[in-house]
Design a binder for these strands. Structure first.
Length: 823
DNA sequence: TGATCCCGCCAACGT
DNA sequence: ACGTTGGCGGGATCA
């Protein structure tokens, strides 16, 4: 009765019109479609129109699940009159319209993300298959993946239970844990390394112990990961050993969860999932099959919005990959080992957020239109900070919930919140625009705060590549280059306390007082230092990074490779530590003085000429930050050079260290990790320091560099050596640093890729320049532009603000002080 | 072309 | 034996 092949779309109608086109049909089917979209003559007309346009057609496809016979007939006539033969042809369901992804969307649309026990949460495969008009086989594909996430569970033959996303947090946590235990991170690296070595082999060189399996981590053949209480029921039903797709799906997800950035390329995933990667025999066909399956899985995961497709660019060309866009999965709170982390975070956070109220306020300024649902992470944050001293309070701003929040199986607050936002999201589903906006809102930096929370929270993906960039900009550790499509990366400087004021003094002639002045620290101008020597280090580091980076590399159209922070040579732990840079965005907004933190995108270009900023800035205790800072996925993703090398951030940032007497330390700092230093508010106050750094654009807003009160007493030269040999001593240094055994007291002498002068300095005080077109851009966007490249723009030059730039050869030694203070 | 991935054969399983 | 699952890979489509 119900045509099997017929896709329930407009063109299906067209298909029928085709004289004996296909034997398979019989329109029929009034069937109850989606409640929200009544089939009216009007919509019918719309359909006809869209029929001629594949794009439109597919866009609206989802709503047109139900067609009533008479109208179908009507449609036929109309079409017959208006369409040509070829159009008929075109109108046949295209491959895309039969895609698993689309099907999955339809499938998901049938059930609420967060079903209540009241709902009918049973799934009958037959039914679904029929209603969606697809072979059951396809439904299996979907269900299997969903099952791997415990979004559904099999009850019996032909019968599944729908759980929606209730279990997702737990599942992801579990998967992440398993993934870690499985050392997937290492496996990924191994594979990547091999890939590189392979390339070198082709070049007729270098041959290494390619077959160096990781210890005995190869117990890999773990089986399906279950959740307590979510075990397969009906033992008889789940005996199937294979569960291949399910397991594969779980493993695939694990790869994302343990990766930094959370991007996994298909081939790497395939190799890992095949397991037997050791044998280079890499059965071609097997590999191919694996890829096929991964596509299947990826389609479903994409529909769930857990991942999205991206491309990685490397020597060989584009490479398909997927980026995790699902909720950030953070370690379980109970996890002792991670307890530290959260504590540290909360400490750091509390530094800025005195109370939960304040936090809440800061995160969600009561601005009329912004109806944020209180984010679960916020709740969690508060909880952490205040040590669970209260229950969820009714969130005033919470949107109306659709499904009764009678979720017993979830911790009250997070689920509620998550539910709220998820529902909101769900409601917007299908409306790309709205959805985008929604995401935009959600991805507001303020929410980033949740990144430090030990909980799984929805992390809406940025609407476009622009967003990630901005985000990155906000959290980029020192030395990170702007992802920039624009050389001027508007960065808002956050400020701990909205009410605080600072003053910026410019010498010799002009002072730019933002608010109040409260002398505290003086940054001494210094004579310039030898730059060339450092350049070599720079390039050296870069090269190294370049060759060692796996496909973690973010694709770039730019010939200049983009480098990605990654877990290579992770001398230290906390590699995967979640982002924990509290980004106080709205605080930001409250700051009248919004600065533009311009970063030189050409900073990677070793040929750049650097100018001493003239500021000698004492730094300490920031080392671990070089790790922590990168924990930020987004950041790591767009800001390559990072923690790969101890020195890279510095060099990349064009922050040069005076080879002679001044030592350097990574300035990358993250207050969250600076817990060890209890006196971060002293001389110079961290705020001052941070402000300074941020202002100069040397560290991103949001990144905090803890100050060390002893700075001034420590001979800076003690570390000088390390500077020069940074690349070689990297590991050593890192170790030292990571252990935080030494009070790292350093001075940074900043070299900027442009002479700092009044104009450009002042220009940095201007309000952020709105990004142009928020067009969604592929992750493959250039992050680093080569000078002269298509996207090249003058680095931080004063040009952008209309001021005459200073010729890039001049060595300009500014003679001014920058003072900042806070009340 | 290479990237995607639909389609459906057919084997393993369950009943 | 027959229905359910779902591995698998040919080959069509898409970009």
């Amino acid at each position: 009765k119900t045509p099997l092949k017929q896709a329930a779309t407009s063109h299906s109608v067209l298909t029928e019109i085709q004289p004996d086109c296909q034997p398979l049909t019989t329109p029929t089917k009034p069937k109850e479609g989606l409640p929200a979209d009544p089939w009216t003559p009007t919509s019918n007309l719309k359909m006809l129109i869209s029929a001629a346009s594949p794009e439109i057609r597919s866009r609206e496809q989802r709503r047109e699940l139900s067609i009533n016979t008479s109208e179908v007939l009507h449609a036929k006539h109309c079409l017959q009159e208006h369409l040509l033969g070829e159009e008929y042809e075109k109108s046949q369901p295209s491959r895309k319209e039969k895609s698993l992804g689309l099907l999955c969307h339809k499938f998901l649309a049938r059930y609420p993300d967060y079903p209540s026990s009241a709902d009918n949460n049973y799934i009958s495969l037959d039914e679904v298959a029929e209603e969606l008009k697809v072979e059951r086989r396809r439904i299996y594909d979907i269900v299997n993946v969903l099952e791997s996430l415990h979004m559904v569970s099999r009850l019996a033959k032909n019968r599944y239970a729908w759980h929606g996303r209730h279990n997702l947090p737990k599942t992801l946590q579990a998967l992440k844990k398993v993934g870690e235990n499985n050392k997937y991170t290492q496996q990924i690296q191994l594979i990547k390394r091999r890939e590189y070595e392979h390339e070198f082999d082709l070049d007729g060189e270098r041959k290494e112990e390619t077959a160096k399996p990781f210890g005995s981590n190869r117990d890999s053949e773990m089986s399906f990961v279950e959740l307590p209480g979510m075990e397969f029921r009906a033992a008889s039903v789940n005996s199937r050993k294979d569960k291949s797709l399910r397991v594969m799906s779980q493993k695939f997800v694990m790869l994302f969860l343990v990766s930094t950035p959370q991007i996994v390329s298909l081939d790497v995933a395939a190799k890992i999932l095949i397991g037997e990667e050791q044998l280079e025999d890499l059965d071609k066909s097997k590999f191919k099959t694996k890829i096929r399956r991964l596509y299947d899985i990826a389609n479903v995961l994409s529909s769930l919005q857990l991942i999205k497709k991206v491309h990685l660019t490397e020597e060989r060309g584009r490479k398909p990959a997927f980026k995790w866009t699902g909720p950030e999965v953070l370690p379980n709170t109970q996890d002792t080992k991670l307890e530290t982390t959260s504590t540290t975070c909360s400490q750091a956070i509390s530094e800025y957020i005195p109370s939960k109220e304040q936090c809440s306020k800061n995160l969600f300024p009561s601005r009329g239109k912004q109806n944020f649902t209180r984010h679960p992470s916020l709740i969690k944050l508060v909880k952490t900070i205040e040590d669970d001293r209260r229950k969820v309070q009714s969130a005033p701003t919470s949107p109306v919930k659709r499904s009764a929040s009678t979720d017993q199986n979830l911790p009250a607050f997070p689920s509620k919140m998550a539910q709220g936002s998820a529902i909101a999201k769900h409601q917007l589903e299908g409306q790309s625009k709205n959805e985008k906006e929604n995401k935009m809102k959600l991805s507001s930096p303020a929410l980033e705060c949740h990144l430090s929370l030990p909980e799984v929270v929805p992390r809406p993906e940025p609407p476009s590549s622009t967003a990630p960039c901005q985000q990155a900009a906000l959290t980029q550790p020192l030395g990170v280059c702007p992802p920039g499509h624009t050389s001027v990366s508007p960065v808002i400087l956050p400020h701990p306390h909205p009410g605080v004021s600072y003053a910026i003094y410019l010498q010799p002639s002009q002072a730019h007082t933002v608010t109040r002045y409260s002398p505290s620290v003086m940054l001494q101008p210094l004579p310039c230092a030898n730059v060339t020597g450092i350049k070599s280090v720079n390039s050296q580091v870069l090269n190294q990074i370049t060759t060692e980076e796996g496909d973690n590399q973010i694709a770039t159209d730019d010939p200049t490779k983009s480098l990605t922070a990654k877990e290579e040579r992770p001398p230290t732990k906390s590699e995967t530590s979640p982002q924990r840079c509290p980004k106080r965005s709205q605080a930001v907004q409250e700051i009248n003085s919004i600065k533009r933190c311009r970063r030189d995108e050409e900073s990677l270009d070793t040929k750049l000429t650097f100018f001493p900023s003239g500021y000698l800035i004492p730094l300490t205790q920031c080392s671990h930050g070089s790790k922590a800072g990168f924990a930020d996925k987004e950041k790591a993703e767009v800001c390559p050079v990072q923690h790969t090398a101890y020195s890279s951030p510095i060099t990349a940032l064009n922050i040069m260290l005076s080879p002679t007497s001044i030592a350097a330390a990574p300035v990358l700092g993250n207050s969250c990790l600076s817990s060890s230093n209890a006196s971060s508010a002293q001389i110079p106050s961290s705020s001052v320091l941070n402000f300074t750094l941020q202002h100069i654009g040397l560290i991103p807003a949001g990144v905090q560099v803890p100050a060390n009160p002893f700075v001034q007493h420590v001979p800076a030269s003690s570390q000088a050596e390390n500077v020069t040999h940074s690349s070689e001593n990297r590991s050593l240094q890192e170790e030292k640093v990571s252990k935080n055994t030494l009070p790292l007291n350093h001075f940074l002498f900043f070299f900027l890729p442009f002479p700092l002068n009044e104009s450009n300095f002042l220009s940095s005080l201007q309000p952020p320049v709105p990004k142009e077109a928020q067009e969604p851009q592929p992750v493959t966007e250039n992050f680093f532009r080569t000078p002269g490249g298509p996207n090249t723009e003058p680095p931080l030059s004063a040009k952008s603000d209309g001021t005459a730039g200073i010729s890039p050869g001049t060595l300009y030694i500014p003679q001014r002080k920058l003072e900042v203070s806070e009340d």
